[in-house]
Design a protein around this nucleic acid. Structure first.
Lengths: 219, 219
DNA sequence: GTCTATAGAAAGATAGAC
DNA sequence: GTCTATCTTTCTATAGAC
């Protein structure tokens, strides 16, 4: 008879719990954090927490959804031309994470944990990677259409980048094995530096399993 | 009086345990795996396992050391010219992991878990990243010295690469915050595609904390 | 070197009072 | 909506027999 239109106390408690869970998962990972840890941060008992989120998995899903909603809200506030703004937005997310280490490690940890198909956040991360990769490809494609690439880069920078590509591609490949050709992509990156290595040197058999999928047709 | 020169039975059991632990950690991560799981794979009880490795942490350290030893042994078997062989070797490791999903996820999972300074494998991963990044930079530098870069790349490939760089650089930055400039490196990558974005667009304040370190002097 | 038995701590979740 | 109390399971690790 009285569902008040004002934000109730319960909603604020939910927010407090989500903040606490975001911080705890970020610092220690999903498995290592207990409901009691999170509840203590939010200043209630773990039973009180379970009243709002009936299970630990349910809490995780809501933390991830909230985080993506906040990031997407930032994207929509951008007033630049659409395509390039996706790139600017992604870079700003990275820059922001630099100042908040806890939030930054959430995806680094959870996205690797979620490679397991039985992990409660597996579907979330698969979907997220697909949408992000698509948006970035569209934006970069638009840019490339206008001018060709000349560029300077240091060996230090290239080394770090190559290593990051190895780790990042591995994560993508674990989530979507058929859509990522790690070797092909790394060879393409080296080719962009003028370093040409024949694929047969790496993959002597020409294994069809490692040759399939987008993101790695040899250049 | 009789320390036999022949490999004893205990040594073979140790190997069986290390194999089992590698597989289990790879598939489920360090925290999610119990000593009983590993012991069951190695066909003994968890108490028998603790006779060989006095704690779970001790077991993890030995698993990582063994894995790196095997990879380095492969490197030493390569007969190519030294510098380029580092690149070929790294690519072959990636290619091999493609055929053995379990082994591939070990580092994806553990390297993100190990970002925590209190994690038993933290020092191991910090050291590993430093050595790898150095070797790769040397090899790429040698290549670059010979010819300049022209290259083709698809937008799909570039999108996946950019995303992998985001994830991979984040991991490096979590391990060595002072040595990785994520935004700078990503801007450098985009510049290599002919996409020039001013750093001030991303990082309006010119924050010295996000500008420091190698791997990201702006191109 | 491997076992059974068990200690001791902590986890996720439920029952029911207020 | 939040609590205390408790159940059930699972964990790492130890004690001591063989």
């Amino acid at each position: 008879m009285s569902p008040a239109p004002e934000p109730r106390k319960g909603a604020r408690t939910r927010e407090r719990i989500l903040d606490a869970a975001l911080g705890a998962f970020s610092e220690q990972g999903f498995n290592a954090v207990s409901l009691r840890d999170i509840a203590a941060r939010a200043e209630l008992t773990h039973v009180g927490l379970l009243h709002h989120f009936p299970s630990k998995e349910d809490l995780l899903i809501h933390v991830l959804e909230r985080r993506d909603e906040l990031d997407l809200a930032e994207l929509r506030e951008q007033t630049d031309v659409l395509d390039r703004s996706v790139l600017v937005w992604a870079l700003r997310i990275v820059a922001r994470d630099t100042t908040t280490p806890g939030a930054a490690s959430l995806y680094a940890r959870l996205s690797s944990e979620a490679a397991d198909v039985d992990h409660p956040a597996h579907a979330h991360f698969v979907d997220r990677y697909q949408r992000l990769a698509g948006a970035l490809a569209t934006a970069i494609g638009t840019e490339i259409a206008e001018h060709g690439p000349p560029f300077p880069i240091t060996a230090e920078q290239a080394g770090r980048q190559f290593l990051a590509l190895m780790d990042g591609l591995q994560l993508q490949w674990l989530l979507e094995p058929d859509r990522v050709d790690m070797v092909g992509s790394l060879l393409g990156y080296l080719a962009s530096l003028g370093i040409v290595i024949d694929r047969e040197t790496i993959d002597p058999v020409g294994d069809p399993a490692t040759t399939a999928g987008a993101g790695g047709e040899r250049a």
